[in-house]
Nucleic acid binder design. Structure first.
Length: 359
DNA sequence: TCAATTTGACCAGA
DNA sequence: TCTGGTCAAATTGA
């Protein structure tokens, strides 16, 4: 059994390497523009196929592990929690656990920092596209400010176990550290994603208020730079949630975020909700021009032998490793959009720093 | 009236 | 035993 697992892991590693090589090739050629748009598209297609293949295999590995371990410790759905331990995001188990304990120590978690800019309300700044209900507030030892506890509004209606904790930073009271725990299992996550995706096509250049009205009062657009994938890719990412963490961290330096101009809307590439629900990562738009997605964003860890780090400190390290945008390759993603068709919506040029990914 | 927030109490992990 | 996380009754606001 264990031997088979090793073979599968080697096989997966090989596929991943292939994908990485293809991505590197694409990256190199993007800079030199030596390849035609069509060729680049083929490369992209190959990359996507490679990863799809990996995920399919990962599903099998997961099955194997279920049988092998029984307790699914090495299941493909392992996330890293605060304690840096590999934990299983098994909703059934979690529900069982919840019945026993009020604490949810085993939930996967990730943290992001949000700076509240002057002229922006706290409500807007901390809004992430999902509706939350506050269920508690606690003074934390050593912290100047109390921590707020929020859970998904649809907790009772849809059994969504997503929670978040909002802690005002001691050092910088304008900065809030938001720790998300668990993922949304309610409808709003995908709903918001789709809405964002649609809007990115329709509402480019519109102001935030217009967007907010379109989404209703509760579901507001995050002010942070958003990332929007189309519906098809979204489905894939949903699938990935049950897969292992396989990608190394990579970063997208964002163009001049933090300044409240209308262009920010145009720079919204991925929905924040997606980041929360699919990319278990962290980013700090106001403090850094870089977005960092931890590998956990693409699933979960363990079993592959890949080093996956999603602890706060690690994320912070990545965030602080800002690369000057002037040195970043500029990629016109409108071109890529051609090849992603409806899978991915990149509605604006943005800067990709893939050096970490390809290093 | 209903939904959201506040706040003190309770519970379990460290 | 201390502390963080959650519950649930009370309160507030639309």
């Amino acid at each position: 059994m264990e031997g088979n697992l090793k073979l599968e892991q080697v096989d997966l590693m090989s596929d991943l390497m292939e994908g990485k090589e293809l991505a590197k090739e694409l990256y190199d050629n993007m800079l030199s523009s030596s390849l035609s748009l069509e060729t680049k598209g083929v490369l992209l297609e190959k990359i996507l196929l490679t990863y799809e293949k990996v995920f399919t295999k990962l599903g099998n590995v997961g099955e194997t592990n279920k049988i092998t371990n029984g307790n699914m410790v090495d299941s493909p759905c392992s996330f890293t929690n605060d304690s840096n331990k590999s934990e299983v995001l098994d909703l059934d188990q979690d529900v069982k656990h919840k019945n026993v304990s009020k604490k949810r120590k085993t939930m996967c978690s990730w943290t992001k920092k949000v700076k509240v800019c002057s002229g922006t309300t706290l409500e807007v700044s901390l809004n992430d596209g999902c509706s939350w209900r506050k269920y508690g507030q606690k003074d934390i030892l050593g912290a100047k400010f109390p921590r707020g506890y929020y859970r998904c509004t649809h907790r009772h209606a849809q059994g969504c176990l997503a929670t978040k904790q909002v802690q005002k930073s001691d050092e910088d009271p304008t900065t809030y550290e938001i720790t998300y725990k668990g993922r949304h299992t309610c409808n709003q996550a995908s709903h918001v994603n789709k809405a964002c995706s649609l809007e990115s096509k329709i509402c480019l250049g519109e102001n935030k208020h217009q967007k907010n009205e379109a989404q209703g009062k509760k579901i507001e657009q995050p002010q942070e730079t958003m990332f929007t994938f189309g519906s098809e890719l979204e489905v894939k990412e949903e699938d990935l949630e049950t897969k292992k963490d396989i990608f190394p961290s990579f970063c997208f330096p964002s163009p001049s975020i933090g300044t409240e101009n209308e262009n920010n809307d145009n720079n919204n590439i991925f929905s924040d909700t997606m980041i929360e629900n699919h990319f278990l990562g962290s980013f700090s738009p106001s403090e850094s021009n870089i977005f960092c997605f931890s590998p956990c964003q693409f699933g979960s860890s363990s079993g592959l032998g890949l080093s996956v780090q999603t602890s706060e400190s690690d994320i912070t390290d990545i965030v602080s490793a800002t690369t000057p945008t002037s040195n970043s390759p500029i990629v016109n993603l409108d071109e890529l959009d051609l090849f992603f068709d409806n899978n991915v919506d990149f509605d604006t040029d943005f800067l990709i720093n893939t050096s970490e990914f390809f290093s």
